[in-house]
Amino acid sequence: MSILTLYNSLQAYLLVGALLFGMGVYGLITRRTLIGMLIAGEMILVGASLNFMAFNRFTAPDPATGQIFALFIMAIAAAEAAIGLSIVIAIYRHYRSIDAQDVVKLKG
């Protein structure tokens, strides 16, 4: 298999999806601001969605199912971003900071 025919192999898409997922996890545990964590969470969702689409193209018998699932993931991600950002705005108004270290009122 040549490097120029990679676009026809399932593994190339799965590797990109795994890489996006890993970068999202890295960002989620190293970011200190809440918005940075939200950005990393979106990357995790995109990595999962890319996996669904790759399996949909290469192995699933019905190629509409994975596309519909990816559309549902997009809808849930949009809802998550709206809720998360409104929580960030509320936290900023209350604490004057969106640093995850400063928001420790619920810490035991």
């Binding site: 799965l14 890993g22 399996f55 949909n56 018998p61």
Partner: peptide
């Protein structure tokens, strides 16, 4: 995590079924 997922993706023999429509 990334290496584990990549190993799963590379080591598994993924099946291939005939399509029932064109999506």
């Amino acid at each position: 995590l990334t290496v584990g997922l990549a190993l799963i993706a590379l080591k598994t023999m993924w099946g291939d079924e005939p399509k029932v429509n064109d999506g």
